[in-house]
Simulated scan of single mutants.
Amino acid sequence: MLQLVDFIVRNRFFLVFVLLETLSIWMVVRNNTYWGATYFNTSNYYVAKTLALSNSVSEYTHLDDINADLASENAHLHALVATLSQAKPLDAPAGYVPDSAFAERFSYTVAKVVDNETNKPNNVITIDKGTAHGIAPGMGVISATGVVGKVRFCSENYSIITSILHSQFMVSTKLVRSNEIGYAKWPGKDPDLIDLVDVSKYTKVYKGDSAVTSNQNSVFPPGIMVGKVESVEVNPNQTFYNIVLQLATDFRNLSYVYVVKNQQLGEQEQLKQRTETTK
Protein backbone atom coordinates (compact mmCIF):
# COMPACT_ATOMS: atom_id res chain seq x y z
CA MET A 1 0.00 0.00 0.00
CA LEU A 2 2.81 2.37 0.88
CA GLN A 3 4.49 1.59 -2.46
CA LEU A 4 1.29 2.53 -4.30
CA VAL A 5 1.01 5.83 -2.44
CA ASP A 6 4.68 6.52 -3.11
CA PHE A 7 4.16 5.81 -6.84
CA ILE A 8 1.20 8.21 -7.01
CA VAL A 9 3.12 10.97 -5.18
CA ARG A 10 6.16 10.61 -7.45
CA ASN A 11 4.07 10.64 -10.64
CA ARG A 12 1.27 12.99 -9.54
CA PHE A 13 1.87 15.58 -12.25
CA PHE A 14 1.86 13.00 -15.02
CA LEU A 15 -1.27 11.31 -13.64
CA VAL A 16 -3.06 14.67 -13.37
CA PHE A 17 -2.07 15.40 -17.00
CA VAL A 18 -3.46 12.07 -18.21
CA LEU A 19 -6.68 12.60 -16.25
CA LEU A 20 -7.18 16.11 -17.69
CA GLU A 21 -6.44 14.88 -21.24
CA THR A 22 -8.99 12.09 -20.84
CA LEU A 23 -11.56 14.51 -19.46
CA SER A 24 -10.93 16.93 -22.34
CA ILE A 25 -11.34 14.23 -24.98
CA TRP A 26 -14.53 13.01 -23.32
CA MET A 27 -15.99 16.57 -23.26
CA VAL A 28 -15.10 17.12 -26.96
CA VAL A 29 -16.69 13.82 -27.99
CA ARG A 30 -19.72 14.47 -25.83
CA ASN A 31 -20.41 18.04 -26.98
CA ASN A 32 -19.31 17.89 -30.65
CA THR A 33 -21.45 15.86 -33.08
CA TYR A 34 -18.73 15.38 -35.69
CA TRP A 35 -16.03 14.19 -33.29
CA GLY A 36 -18.57 12.07 -31.42
CA ALA A 37 -19.57 10.24 -34.58
CA THR A 38 -15.91 9.86 -35.61
CA TYR A 39 -15.00 8.40 -32.22
CA PHE A 40 -17.81 5.89 -32.17
CA ASN A 41 -17.20 4.79 -35.79
CA THR A 42 -13.48 4.34 -35.13
CA SER A 43 -14.02 2.51 -31.85
CA ASN A 44 -16.63 0.22 -33.41
CA TYR A 45 -14.23 -0.57 -36.28
CA TYR A 46 -11.41 -1.64 -33.95
CA VAL A 47 -13.77 -3.52 -31.64
CA ALA A 48 -15.12 -5.43 -34.66
CA LYS A 49 -11.56 -6.19 -35.83
CA THR A 50 -10.64 -7.45 -32.36
CA LEU A 51 -13.73 -9.65 -32.16
CA ALA A 52 -13.08 -11.06 -35.64
CA LEU A 53 -9.50 -11.91 -34.67
CA SER A 54 -10.69 -13.49 -31.44
CA ASN A 55 -13.28 -15.59 -33.30
CA SER A 56 -10.69 -16.70 -35.87
CA VAL A 57 -8.34 -17.86 -33.12
CA SER A 58 -11.18 -19.64 -31.35
CA GLU A 59 -12.30 -21.40 -34.55
CA TYR A 60 -8.74 -22.45 -35.35
CA THR A 61 -8.28 -24.04 -31.93
CA HIS A 62 -11.53 -25.99 -32.42
CA LEU A 63 -10.78 -27.27 -35.94
CA ASP A 64 -10.26 -30.83 -34.69
CA ASP A 65 -13.70 -30.84 -33.07
CA ILE A 66 -15.29 -29.34 -36.20
CA ASN A 67 -13.63 -31.93 -38.46
CA ALA A 68 -14.72 -34.75 -36.16
CA ASP A 69 -18.32 -33.50 -36.26
CA LEU A 70 -18.22 -33.26 -40.06
CA ALA A 71 -16.78 -36.76 -40.30
CA SER A 72 -19.58 -38.13 -38.11
CA GLU A 73 -22.17 -36.38 -40.24
CA ASN A 74 -20.58 -37.78 -43.41
CA ALA A 75 -20.72 -41.28 -41.94
CA HIS A 76 -24.45 -40.86 -41.37
CA LEU A 77 -24.91 -39.58 -44.93
CA HIS A 78 -22.90 -42.49 -46.35
CA ALA A 79 -25.18 -44.93 -44.56
CA LEU A 80 -28.26 -43.11 -45.84
CA VAL A 81 -27.01 -43.02 -49.45
CA ALA A 82 -26.06 -46.71 -49.34
CA THR A 83 -29.49 -47.62 -48.00
CA LEU A 84 -31.34 -45.55 -50.59
CA SER A 85 -29.25 -46.85 -53.49
CA GLN A 86 -29.85 -50.45 -52.46
CA ALA A 87 -33.53 -49.97 -51.67
CA LYS A 88 -34.27 -49.74 -55.39
CA PRO A 89 -31.23 -49.99 -57.69
CA LEU A 90 -31.52 -48.03 -60.94
CA ASP A 91 -30.72 -51.08 -63.04
CA ALA A 92 -33.13 -53.37 -61.20
CA PRO A 93 -35.56 -55.29 -63.44
CA ALA A 94 -39.30 -54.74 -63.24
CA GLY A 95 -40.88 -56.53 -60.31
CA TYR A 96 -37.66 -56.69 -58.25
CA VAL A 97 -38.40 -56.10 -54.55
CA PRO A 98 -35.22 -55.72 -52.47
CA ASP A 99 -35.03 -57.03 -48.93
CA SER A 100 -34.93 -54.17 -46.39
CA ALA A 101 -32.23 -55.90 -44.31
CA PHE A 102 -30.06 -56.22 -47.42
CA ALA A 103 -30.48 -52.53 -48.22
CA GLU A 104 -29.43 -51.53 -44.69
CA ARG A 105 -26.57 -54.01 -44.29
CA PHE A 106 -23.74 -51.44 -44.24
CA SER A 107 -22.84 -49.38 -41.17
CA TYR A 108 -20.00 -46.87 -40.76
CA THR A 109 -17.54 -45.99 -37.98
CA VAL A 110 -15.54 -42.76 -38.11
CA ALA A 111 -11.80 -43.08 -37.39
CA LYS A 112 -8.87 -40.69 -37.44
CA VAL A 113 -5.69 -41.47 -39.37
CA VAL A 114 -2.66 -41.48 -37.05
CA ASP A 115 -0.08 -42.82 -39.51
CA ASN A 116 -0.12 -43.02 -43.31
CA GLU A 117 2.32 -44.33 -45.90
CA THR A 118 2.31 -43.38 -49.59
CA ASN A 119 5.90 -43.89 -50.85
CA LYS A 120 6.36 -47.66 -50.45
CA PRO A 121 5.42 -50.56 -52.73
CA ASN A 122 3.11 -51.89 -49.99
CA ASN A 123 1.60 -49.03 -48.00
CA VAL A 124 -0.45 -49.29 -44.81
CA ILE A 125 -2.49 -46.83 -42.75
CA THR A 126 -2.98 -46.76 -38.97
CA ILE A 127 -6.26 -45.51 -37.47
CA ASP A 128 -7.30 -44.77 -33.89
CA LYS A 129 -10.13 -47.34 -33.66
CA GLY A 130 -9.87 -51.05 -32.89
CA THR A 131 -11.77 -54.05 -31.53
CA ALA A 132 -13.10 -51.96 -28.64
CA HIS A 133 -14.99 -49.90 -31.24
CA GLY A 134 -16.34 -52.86 -33.23
CA ILE A 135 -13.59 -52.90 -35.86
CA ALA A 136 -12.52 -56.28 -37.23
CA PRO A 137 -10.13 -57.54 -39.94
CA GLY A 138 -11.65 -57.68 -43.42
CA MET A 139 -13.79 -54.55 -43.11
CA GLY A 140 -13.62 -52.01 -45.92
CA VAL A 141 -12.35 -48.48 -45.39
CA ILE A 142 -13.40 -45.40 -47.39
CA SER A 143 -12.89 -41.64 -47.18
CA ALA A 144 -15.25 -38.79 -47.95
CA THR A 145 -14.05 -38.97 -51.56
CA GLY A 146 -13.48 -42.65 -52.30
CA VAL A 147 -12.01 -46.08 -51.52
CA VAL A 148 -9.10 -46.22 -49.05
CA GLY A 149 -8.42 -49.91 -48.31
CA LYS A 150 -9.29 -52.82 -46.04
CA VAL A 151 -8.68 -53.57 -42.35
CA ARG A 152 -5.85 -56.08 -41.91
CA PHE A 153 -4.92 -56.18 -38.18
CA CYS A 154 -6.63 -54.85 -35.06
CA SER A 155 -5.66 -54.19 -31.46
CA GLU A 156 -8.03 -52.89 -28.82
CA ASN A 157 -7.68 -49.24 -29.82
CA TYR A 158 -5.88 -49.24 -33.19
CA SER A 159 -6.14 -50.90 -36.59
CA ILE A 160 -3.80 -51.37 -39.55
CA ILE A 161 -5.33 -50.77 -42.98
CA THR A 162 -4.03 -52.33 -46.17
CA SER A 163 -4.12 -49.26 -48.41
CA ILE A 164 -5.34 -49.35 -51.99
CA LEU A 165 -1.72 -48.26 -52.60
CA HIS A 166 -0.61 -51.86 -51.93
CA SER A 167 0.58 -54.39 -54.49
CA GLN A 168 -1.70 -57.13 -53.09
CA PHE A 169 -4.91 -55.07 -52.92
CA MET A 170 -7.55 -55.18 -55.64
CA VAL A 171 -11.12 -53.91 -55.69
CA SER A 172 -13.89 -54.78 -58.14
CA THR A 173 -14.57 -51.60 -60.10
CA LYS A 174 -17.23 -50.55 -62.60
CA LEU A 175 -17.03 -47.85 -65.27
CA VAL A 176 -20.20 -45.78 -64.93
CA ARG A 177 -20.86 -45.00 -68.61
CA SER A 178 -20.12 -48.42 -70.09
CA ASN A 179 -21.05 -50.55 -67.03
CA GLU A 180 -17.92 -52.60 -67.75
CA ILE A 181 -16.37 -54.24 -64.67
CA GLY A 182 -12.66 -54.71 -63.98
CA TYR A 183 -10.23 -54.62 -61.06
CA ALA A 184 -8.39 -51.58 -59.73
CA LYS A 185 -4.81 -52.50 -58.84
CA TRP A 186 -1.93 -50.18 -57.90
CA PRO A 187 1.25 -50.65 -59.98
CA GLY A 188 3.43 -49.33 -57.15
CA LYS A 189 4.51 -45.97 -58.59
CA ASP A 190 2.45 -42.77 -58.39
CA PRO A 191 0.14 -42.51 -55.32
CA ASP A 192 -2.31 -40.52 -57.46
CA LEU A 193 -2.74 -43.13 -60.20
CA ILE A 194 -3.99 -46.72 -60.29
CA ASP A 195 -4.49 -49.27 -63.07
CA LEU A 196 -7.88 -50.69 -64.05
CA VAL A 197 -7.33 -54.19 -65.47
CA ASP A 198 -9.45 -56.88 -67.16
CA VAL A 199 -11.67 -54.43 -69.07
CA SER A 200 -12.44 -55.82 -72.52
CA LYS A 201 -11.23 -53.73 -75.44
CA TYR A 202 -14.43 -54.59 -77.33
CA THR A 203 -16.40 -52.09 -75.25
CA LYS A 204 -16.21 -48.29 -75.40
CA VAL A 205 -14.23 -46.57 -72.64
CA TYR A 206 -14.40 -42.78 -72.23
CA LYS A 207 -11.64 -40.59 -70.83
CA GLY A 208 -12.92 -38.82 -67.71
CA ASP A 209 -15.49 -41.54 -66.97
CA SER A 210 -16.05 -42.29 -63.28
CA ALA A 211 -14.96 -45.64 -61.87
CA VAL A 212 -16.85 -46.83 -58.79
CA THR A 213 -17.07 -49.96 -56.67
CA SER A 214 -19.23 -52.60 -58.33
CA ASN A 215 -21.97 -54.79 -56.90
CA GLN A 216 -19.64 -57.77 -57.12
CA ASN A 217 -17.91 -57.37 -53.77
CA SER A 218 -19.03 -57.82 -50.19
CA VAL A 219 -16.60 -55.38 -48.53
CA PHE A 220 -17.56 -52.04 -50.06
CA PRO A 221 -20.99 -50.63 -50.82
CA PRO A 222 -21.57 -50.24 -54.57
CA GLY A 223 -21.06 -46.81 -56.08
CA ILE A 224 -18.10 -45.65 -53.95
CA MET A 225 -15.68 -43.62 -56.08
CA VAL A 226 -12.38 -45.24 -57.00
CA GLY A 227 -11.23 -42.68 -59.55
CA LYS A 228 -11.65 -41.23 -63.03
CA VAL A 229 -10.24 -42.49 -66.31
CA GLU A 230 -6.97 -40.66 -66.96
CA SER A 231 -5.78 -42.54 -70.02
CA VAL A 232 -6.81 -45.50 -72.22
CA GLU A 233 -4.47 -47.55 -74.40
CA VAL A 234 -5.04 -50.61 -76.56
CA ASN A 235 -2.41 -53.29 -76.96
CA PRO A 236 -2.96 -55.15 -80.28
CA ASN A 237 -1.71 -58.39 -78.74
CA GLN A 238 -4.14 -58.30 -75.82
CA THR A 239 -7.92 -58.47 -75.42
CA PHE A 240 -7.99 -55.92 -72.58
CA TYR A 241 -7.46 -52.17 -72.31
CA ASN A 242 -4.55 -50.59 -70.43
CA ILE A 243 -6.54 -48.09 -68.36
CA VAL A 244 -5.09 -45.66 -65.82
CA LEU A 245 -7.35 -44.01 -63.22
CA GLN A 246 -6.78 -40.78 -61.34
CA LEU A 247 -7.53 -41.82 -57.74
CA ALA A 248 -10.45 -40.05 -56.08
CA THR A 249 -8.79 -40.09 -52.64
CA ASP A 250 -5.85 -37.79 -51.91
CA PHE A 251 -3.76 -40.10 -49.70
CA ARG A 252 -1.20 -37.42 -48.90
CA ASN A 253 -3.83 -35.41 -47.01
CA LEU A 254 -5.91 -38.19 -45.47
CA SER A 255 -7.25 -37.21 -42.03
CA TYR A 256 -10.49 -39.11 -41.36
CA VAL A 257 -11.81 -42.39 -42.76
CA TYR A 258 -14.96 -44.49 -42.44
CA VAL A 259 -14.72 -48.19 -41.59
CA VAL A 260 -17.49 -50.06 -43.39
CA LYS A 261 -19.14 -53.03 -41.72
CA ASN A 262 -21.23 -55.42 -43.81
CA GLN A 263 -23.72 -56.85 -41.33
CA GLN A 264 -24.35 -59.85 -43.61
CA LEU A 265 -20.73 -60.61 -44.50
CA GLY A 266 -20.57 -63.64 -42.20
CA GLU A 267 -23.63 -65.17 -43.85
CA GLN A 268 -22.16 -64.61 -47.32
CA GLU A 269 -18.81 -66.15 -46.36
CA GLN A 270 -20.50 -69.22 -44.86
CA LEU A 271 -22.36 -69.84 -48.11
CA LYS A 272 -19.13 -69.51 -50.10
CA GLN A 273 -17.37 -72.00 -47.82
CA ARG A 274 -20.27 -74.45 -48.14
CA THR A 275 -20.09 -74.11 -51.92
CA GLU A 276 -16.34 -74.79 -51.92
CA THR A 277 -16.69 -77.91 -49.75
CA THR A 278 -19.40 -79.40 -51.97
CA LYS A 279 -17.52 -78.95 -55.26
Rank of each mutant, 00 (worst) to 15 (best):
I125D: 03
A101K: 15
A184L: 03
A94S: 12
L51R: 11
A111G: 11
Q270Y: 08
A71V: 00
N242D: 11
T249M: 04
F7G: 00
Y96Q: 09
T61E: 13
S43I: 12
E21H: 07
F13N: 15
N55H: 09
V110E: 08
P137G: 10
K204N: 12
V259F: 04
I160S: 14
L2Y: 05
Q268V: 12
Y45W: 12
S214V: 07
T38K: 15
V260C: 14
R30G: 05
L245Q: 09
R10D: 14
G146T: 03
R152H: 12
N237M: 09
W35P: 01
L23R: 04
Q268Y: 12
R30C: 03
R274L: 14
T22G: 15
D198Q: 09
Y202C: 06
G149H: 04
S143E: 03
E269C: 02
L80D: 11
D115H: 12
L80T: 13
V114G: 02
E21Y: 10
F251K: 00
V229T: 03
N119L: 10
F240K: 13
E117V: 01
H62D: 07
G223K: 03
V97Y: 06
K189Q: 04
D128W: 10
S155P: 03
Y39V: 02
F169V: 11
S214M: 03
P137Q: 11
I243T: 07
F240I: 11
Q246E: 11
A136K: 15
D128N: 15
N235Q: 05
A82Q: 06
C154V: 15
H76P: 00
A48P: 04
L2V: 08
V114C: 06
G130C: 10
V9N: 11
V244C: 00
V259E: 04
D250P: 00
W186I: 03
L63Q: 07
M139I: 02
V9Q: 15
D65N: 12
K129G: 02
T126S: 12
D195M: 06
M27H: 11
K88P: 00
I181T: 12
S163E: 04
A68Y: 13
I243H: 08
V47M: 10
S85E: 14
S178D: 05
M27L: 13
K174A: 15
R30H: 13
L2A: 10
Q238N: 06
T275E: 13
Y241W: 04
N31C: 07
F106W: 13
V113A: 01
I8S: 02
F7V: 03
A211I: 01
V113M: 03
T33G: 03
L193R: 10
S214Y: 06
Y46G: 00
I125W: 03
Y45R: 15
